[in-house]
Design a protein around this nucleic acid. Structure first.
Lengths: 221, 221
DNA sequence: ACATATAGTGACGTCGTGTCATTTTTTCAA
DNA sequence: TTGAAAAAATGACACGACGTCACTATATGT
């Protein structure tokens, strides 16, 4: 009987890898996918649990088995965005290579990711003003960035790449610009031209931090 | 009888100037004042018609005689903010005097007004993500600013004060920075130090637009 | 002072939310 | 394969906030 048992287990494993994990995980993913689908074309304010679960094909109240509320769901989406964003912003923070070049690289990646995920970014940003808890998550996400940028500015000031000034308020200003410019430019269809946005964001960062550097008006990497 | 009539009229006029206009206008003002009071210390998301009218001391449903909904009320608050903001930003747009000096003056006024009205600014900004109509009003407010800044940059480029680049995307970036930095810094108590915010905002605008200008790290006007 | 216009009231219907007891489906091991 | 236990899905419910409406009370102006 160990034969049939093993076969059975093997089948289970096979079916699991085909269907992806347990039922609950598939359902959770279906809900997240449904949310992404809806938020791609409609603002967060129009999203209701009823509509979302209708798309998912499961009873509305089942939603609450997977998320506390829509804001908890948005938090999940934000966390996955965060990963992409920190990854793509890495070059400048790595503090290897030419500061201006790596800054351009980081900003370019940031624009790309935010362009691709624009409507989601906007939905999270919108939702964060309505819910206490999500607001804290969003806010601490921005603050992490503030901290990282501040530290990097201070380090490069010590090395003489950046002139002396109070780093944090400038870091905060630059980050708020990025965040809300991206939300504004890429948060709704039709999204704005990412090349133009990248160009102007780069101009601001470079002229603020590395004043003497020349600025190209076309990106010719 | 014309005597008593005149006296009566005189009394009416006196009482009107003392009590300010008709009942409806006083009530409307009371509602707006109540909203200002509540929003001074709590986020927009916690504001309900019931709570607002409780503060005002009138029946909840009377609210709808004066405003379509809370977003219409917020629109009224935004419009009064707008006036202050356009007024105070005038110097740079007037295109008289030294561009950098007038820019500093405008930014200084902007920071002052937004500091004073921080929680209201934030409430409007928060509310605008929830309501269609208010979002359009907020958005067109920002766009007006985008237009004005774009025009001013282009004019000063023509005069040689500002180097050549695509003006609008830079204007949009600078404005989004202002708007959301102010919302972030001044929108909740305790508000951040306006001096520091002014200094960093000024740094960004000046170094972006008038690269060659020296930047003072203390404001010694 | 009175007739009329206007402001204020309370009750109602609606919608979206979140919970709960119950039913259905999965899961896993004998 | 089967059946018992665990987990997931369902439908009904109560709640809170909204916006409307017929009605009452109060202002307004002649």
């Amino acid at each position: 009987m160990s034969y049939s048992k093993l076969t059975h287990i093997a089948e289970k494993a096979a079916s699991k890898s085909a269907q992806q994990l347990r039922k609950s995980d598939r359902t959770r993913k279906a809900i997240l996918d449904g949310a992404l689908e809806l938020l791609w074309s409609r603002p967060f304010r129009d999203l209701t649990v009823a509509e979302l679960m209708e798309v998912t094909g499961i009873c509305r109240s089942a939603f609450y088995r997977y998320f506390d509320d829509l804001y908890a769901l948005m938090e999940t989406l934000l966390l996955s965005l965060e990963e992409d964003i920190f990854d793509v912003a890495a070059p400048w923070f790595s503090r290897e290579g030419n500061p201006v070049d790596t800054l351009r690289e980081s900003l370019s990646g940031l624009v790309r990711v935010c362009y691709e995920q624009g409507p989601i970014l906007r939905a999270v940003s919108d939702a964060s003003t309505i819910d206490d808890r999500l607001e804290n998550v969003w806010s601490s996400f921005l603050t992490q960035f503030d901290d990282a940028v501040t530290a990097n500015i201070e380090a490069q000031q010590a090395e003489g790449f950046i002139q002396e000034f109070s780093a944090r308020p400038v870091a905060v200003a630059l980050n708020r610009m990025d965040a809300y410019l991206f939300v504004h430019a890429f948060g709704r269809h039709p999204r704005q031209n990412p090349e133009l946005v990248l160009e102007s964001v780069t101009r601001l960062w470079v002229s603020t931090l590395y004043q003497s550097s020349p600025i190209t008006t076309k990106n010719n990497d």
